[in-house]
Each structure stands twice: as C-alpha cells, then as structure tokens.
Deep mutational scan, measured.
Amino acid sequence: GATAVSEWTEYKTADGKTLYYNNRTLESTWEKPQELK
C-alpha cells in the first residue's frame, strides 16, 4: 500500500522559529503537529 505522506511543510522564519503549514487543510501552526511526532 501507499505510505501516507505528511501533509505538513516546515518553514523556518527569519527569527529562527519553525512554522508548520498543512497543505491539505491550509492550516498553519507553531506547534509541532501530531503527525510529525
């Protein structure tokens, strides 16, 4: 079967924080998503 690919993209901001963006739900979060833990 196909492996579930994470929908989350990780961005590094200018101040060194990490922003997570979900390509499916168009949601963005500063918290690390469950799927990435």
Rank of each mutant, 00 (worst) to 15 (best):
G1I: 14
G1D: 12
G1M: 12
G1Q: 13
A2V: 12
A2Y: 13
A2N: 13
A2G: 13
A2R: 03
A2S: 14
T3M: 12
T3F: 11
T3D: 13
T3L: 12
T3P: 13
T3V: 13
A4G: 12
A4V: 13
A4M: 13
A4F: 12
A4W: 14
V5A: 13
V5G: 13
V5T: 14
V5Y: 14
V5N: 14
S6D: 11
S6I: 08
S6R: 08
S6Y: 08
E7L: 06
E7M: 05
E7Y: 07
E7R: 02
E7P: 05
E7F: 06
E7H: 06
W8S: 00
W8F: 02
W8D: 00
W8Q: 01
W8G: 01
W8Y: 02
T9M: 11
T9N: 05
T9K: 06
T9R: 07
T9A: 08
T9V: 14
E10I: 15
E10Q: 08
E10L: 09
E10D: 02
Y11T: 09
Y11K: 06
Y11M: 11
Y11C: 12
Y11S: 05
Y11D: 02
Y11W: 09
Y11N: 04
Y11V: 14
K12F: 09
K12W: 07
K12G: 03
K12M: 11
K12E: 08
K12Q: 11
T13I: 05
T13Y: 10
T13D: 09
T13W: 05
T13E: 04
T13R: 04
A14E: 11
A14P: 13
A14S: 11
A14L: 10
A14H: 12
A14R: 07
A14V: 10
A14Y: 05
A14K: 11
D15M: 04
D15K: 03
D15E: 07
D15I: 03
D15Y: 04
G16F: 00
G16L: 01
G16D: 03
G16R: 00
G16H: 03
K17G: 06
K17P: 02
K17T: 09
K17I: 06
T18P: 03
T18A: 03
T18K: 05
T18I: 14
T18F: 05
T18E: 03
T18Q: 03
T18H: 04
T18L: 08
T18W: 04
L19K: 10
L19S: 04
L19F: 15
L19P: 01
L19T: 04
Y20A: 01
Y20Q: 00
Y20E: 01
Y20G: 01
Y20K: 00
Y20W: 15
Y20H: 01
Y21V: 15
Y21F: 15
Y21E: 05
Y21L: 09
Y21R: 08
N22F: 00
N22Q: 00
N22R: 00
N22P: 03
N22Y: 02
N22V: 00
N22K: 00
N22E: 02
N23V: 09
N23S: 06
N23H: 13
N23T: 11
N23A: 06
N23E: 10
R24Y: 15
R24N: 15
R24G: 10
R24M: 15
R24I: 15
R24W: 15
R24S: 15
R24K: 15
T25F: 03
T25S: 02
L26V: 02
L26H: 15
E27I: 07
E27T: 06
E27Y: 04
E27L: 05
E27V: 09
E27G: 03
E27W: 02
E27F: 04
E27S: 04
S28T: 15
S28Y: 15
S28R: 06
S28V: 15
S28H: 11
S28F: 15
S28N: 05
S28K: 10
S28P: 03
T29I: 05
T29P: 00
T29A: 05
T29S: 10
T29H: 06
T29Y: 07
T29G: 03
W30Y: 15
W30K: 06
W30L: 09
W30P: 06
E31S: 06
E31K: 06
E31F: 07
E31M: 07
E31R: 05
E31Y: 06
E31V: 12
E31G: 03
K32S: 04
K32M: 13
K32Q: 09
K32H: 04
K32N: 05
P33G: 01
P33I: 02
P33T: 02
P33S: 01
P33K: 02
P33A: 01
P33W: 01
P33Y: 02
P33N: 01
Q34R: 08
Q34S: 12
Q34I: 13
Q34M: 11
Q34V: 12
Q34Y: 10
Q34E: 15
E35T: 07
E35G: 09
E35Q: 08
E35L: 08
E35N: 09
L36A: 04
L36P: 05
L36C: 05
L36Y: 12
L36D: 07
L36E: 05
K37P: 08
K37I: 14
K37N: 13
K37M: 15
K37H: 12
